[in-house]
Amino acid sequence: MSRLMDLALDPKQLQLNYQPIVDCQAPHTPIAGLECLIRGPRGTNLFSPQVLFEYARRRRFEHTLDMLAFRCFVRELSWLCDVPFSINFHASTLSRDREIVEQILFSLLEASIDPCRLQIELIESAPEINLGLLVRNLSDLRQRGVRFALDDFGVAHSNLRLLSIVQPEIVKIDRSLLPSDVSGIDVACFLSALESARGVGANIVAEGIETISQLEFVRSLGVPYAQGFYFHRPINFQELEKRIHDMKTPVAGPLDQIVGNY
């Protein structure tokens, strides 16, 4: 194993961050859930999550990294009650074998976390994934209460094919589709993605909200949830605990509502 790969798979070197997802229709945009974000070892190129995951894919250890990150997050989040959270998984990890279902559920059990709190965000994927296995694993996890989201919808691999296969409870519309000028012509791309997502009955999260005009734009379209620097930057666990502790209203996230809807 190379020195760099060794570092990337050392739990002590991984940086765990959280970006709150907010209920953007509520006046004070309360926290409705969390996206777990991983960064690689400080002082290396792998600190950037894009580079870290691309490196993992190229060295073919993305499934190991996915599960390592998952276990690290679950361990930390066992200290926070009731807050729904989402974690990225490669579709190739979830279609690797049948054991992955047991591994995920066992990690949750060990941390005393109700599977209903977990939302898995699917990323990529490689064209050669076993779709049959993916569908079976998703179905088994769903039966235990786990929900699924499509991340970065509208760009790269997060395409319409995956939308129909996964039938996600949540679709996160990629930040690049969010128009910087909400009166401009590029609004059409966002609307098109929104329509596709609603077409499969998914709830929507608008990613990358940075300005009040972008917030007003997604609010006007009835988008229920949002995340972005306008609300919260990614923060570590200590800061997260503080913010949740300081909140006056209890968290009630996408997962709670979706469980009722589906």
Partner: peptide, 13 residues
Amino acid sequence: EEREEAEALLATQ
């Protein structure tokens, strides 16, 4: 320092 690291950087930066 290694091929996969360089390729990951080229793909994302």
